Simulated assay, not measured.
Amino acid sequence: SSTSRSILLHFRFSRELAGSTEILQATLYLFWAAPSPGAQPVTVRLLQPDPAGLNATVSSETRLEVQSSGWTTLDVGAAVRSLFGQGTPQLTVELEVPEDWESPLPADHSDSHWPFVVAQAQARTPHRVHRRGVDCSGNSRMCCLREFFVDFKEIGWEDWIIQPEGYHMNYCAGLCPLHMAGIPGLAASFHTAVLKKNTAARPAAAVDSSCVPTQRRPLSLLYYDRDSNIVKTDIPDMIVDSCGCT
């Protein structure tokens, strides 16, 4: 919604999310259309609704100088945390522009250039994940899950990946003795062990046991494509959650 000098942006969250989630950080993304010649001031206000939801007060105000077309980011973590603390499912942002300047936002309402908020969050009451594999201790030599974090900035990908800043890809490493082959699956492991001990069947059953991932999950990625469009995709099997012996 808008008036002659201001534009109101409303970002809505589900009430279930607002009531059960802790916000770690949040960023507002704005794409400026080509402005008039010279720098143009834009005032960005984050509005805080009252408990009744009828009126709103200004919780923060930032003045930006827009000089060219492109994306601008603004930290809104404190505002979103405050809203979630009250169970409020809506963030309202007001953009105040000069009288002689039209809307700084794209006129074509393209989804790829429309304002959005990226938030990193966690459940207030996290549940324990029961892994079928074993996490590695400092001196473990058996097959186990080793945590490994990839920082996109360190590999030079931060200029096109928006979120996340990195992720725990993890990997499997360690020894797989015969009695562990097929874990979990005790029958399979003893079958392999007995078969290996049988000299008559050994040539036909010469199968090595390896430490491999037994459970994976996808990685959600938000990034810019070649035309500066925002793309969200889920890449399968990028995060290793547990390991076992083949």
Rank of each mutant, 00 (worst) to 15 (best):
Q48V: 09
G156E: 04
C172Q: 14
L64D: 05
P104H: 10
T57Q: 11
V93C: 08
V93Y: 10
Y167I: 01
Q67M: 03
F116Q: 11
E102F: 11
V118C: 12
P164M: 06
S69G: 04
M142S: 15
L178C: 11
G85W: 06
C144G: 07
E102S: 10
D50C: 03
P115M: 05
C172P: 09
E154D: 10
V66E: 05
D75E: 02
S112W: 07
L83R: 04
D100Q: 13
L105F: 08
I161Q: 10
L105A: 07
C144W: 05
A187E: 15
L46V: 15
T43M: 09
L64Q: 12
F152A: 05
D108S: 15
R128C: 13
R81W: 06
I183F: 14
R132P: 07
E65C: 13
S60R: 12
L91K: 01
S112K: 15
A187V: 03
L178K: 11
H179K: 06
S189L: 02
R132K: 01
A79F: 06
P51M: 00
D135E: 12
W71C: 10
V117E: 10
L178N: 07
V97Q: 11
R128I: 13
A187K: 05
I155S: 07
F148W: 04
H179E: 13
T88Y: 08
R146F: 03
A188W: 03
T57I: 08
Q120N: 05
S189P: 02
W160C: 07
K153T: 14
C172M: 04
F116R: 11
E154I: 00
Q67D: 15
A79I: 00
A121F: 14
